[in-house]
């Protein structure tokens, strides 16, 4: 069996040549890191969160460093679904292995309209970002309620036959209930976790560092929370899981796989070490040799809890 096949994984019916996927919002549309390496070094890329209409995003500052991580509140700055499909997708599709469109919105109707457009596009998979504020329901995130998660998954499911992966928010009481709601309405896979809501304050000015006051925490700081949630969700659902949250080396990625993920996404670690995706696949190859694995999926969900 070739190495290529050994490292390949299937998630929600989509085959990735390796289990490492660029996380949405950290790799743009695949060309910003071209001076260092081509985008096809990744098993796939999850594109920047895209909404029906163009969005300016939040005012700066949008970034704050934290112990072992960072906060961001970019505010979904993006070019809108039409420009994504017409101007960015054709080139990306020709260069990348698997292209995942990350779909965001404020109203179910907007998600549905975007999903219908993506259905006719060349994207390989749709990742549904349900951490966005639901403007019709007082701005509370879709992803914090089982009803809203079910409703939006159902609506988007009806609008596209593309493999659908729902990206779960960790800012919930019981993530397994949300995961089950997404599964029951037709999600083919789940990705988790999105960022944890956080805040930092400048003690001199008494102003929050982020202009949006609060933002999403990512980076190594969130890893144990993410591993725990992947483990819990893996026991609650049957669909495939893509794990993410603070992965910065192969061992981190392996924790997620062992906890129950079939693939992982990597994001914030790129900001520290842009070369990470060039190192991790060869480290995995070495690991597989040492552990005599024929397929990396052999370790998925092999955690042995006490």
């Amino acid at each position: 069996m070739s190495l290529h096949t050994k490292m390949s994984v299937s998630v929600g019916g989509v085959t990735f040549p390796n289990p490492f996927i660029a996380a949405s919002g950290t790799f743009g549309y695949g060309d910003d890191y071209e001076p260092l390496y081509p985008v096809n070094i990744w098993g796939g890329i999850s594109c920047k969160g895209t909404t029906l209409n163009k969005r300016q995003g939040n005012l700066p500052p949008r970034i704050a460093e934290t112990p072992s991580g960072m906060l961001n509140s970019v505010g979904l700055q993006n070019c809108g679904i039409d420009d994504f499909i017409e101007k960015l997708l054709p080139s990306l599709k020709s260069r990348a292995n698997v292209v995942i469109a990350n779909l965001a919105g404020e109203k179910i109707e907007d998600y549905v309209e975007s999903a219908a457009k993506l259905d006719k596009s060349a994207v390989d998979m749709v990742e549904l970002n349900i951490s966005c504020p639901n403007v019709k329901q007082g701005g509370l995130s879709f992803g914090v309620s089982t009803q809203a998660t079910a409703a939006i998954t159902k609506a988007v499911r009806a609008a596209t036959s593309k493999p659908l992966m729902v990206k779960l928010s960790p800012n919930v009481t019981d993530i397994t209930e949300i995961a089950k709601a997404a599964q029951s309405e037709g999600a083919n896979a789940l990705s988790l976790i999105n960022t944890l809501l956080g805040m930092r304050i400048d003690i001199k000015t008494r102003r929050p560092i982020l202009r949006n006051n609060v933002g999403g925490l990512s980076g190594p700081a969130v890893l144990p929370v993410a591993v725990r949630m992947v483990w819990q969700v893996a026991r609650a659902v049957d669909i495939d899981i893509v794990g993410m949250g603070g992965i910065s080396c192969l061992n981190d990625a392996l924790e997620f796989l062992i906890a129950g993920a079939k693939a992982v996404q990597i994001g914030t670690a790129l900001f520290t070490d842009p070369h990470l995706p060039t190192k991790i696949p060869s480290e995995l190859e070495q690991y597989m040799k040492e552990n005599k694995l024929n397929s990396i999926t052999q370790i998925t969900g092999t955690v042995e809890p006490w």
């Binding site: 920047k48 995003g57 005012l59 700066p60 949008r62």
Partner: peptide
């Protein structure tokens, strides 16, 4: 100068408002 994450344009973390022919944009 702005707080920055990736530095290469991938993350849109370091924004500033610009005014051009097409109006304001980040």
């Amino acid at each position: 100068e702005e707080r920055m994450a990736c530095g290469v344009g991938a993350c849109a973390g370091c924004a500033c408002k610009s005014v051009g022919e097409t109006g304001e944009q980040m």
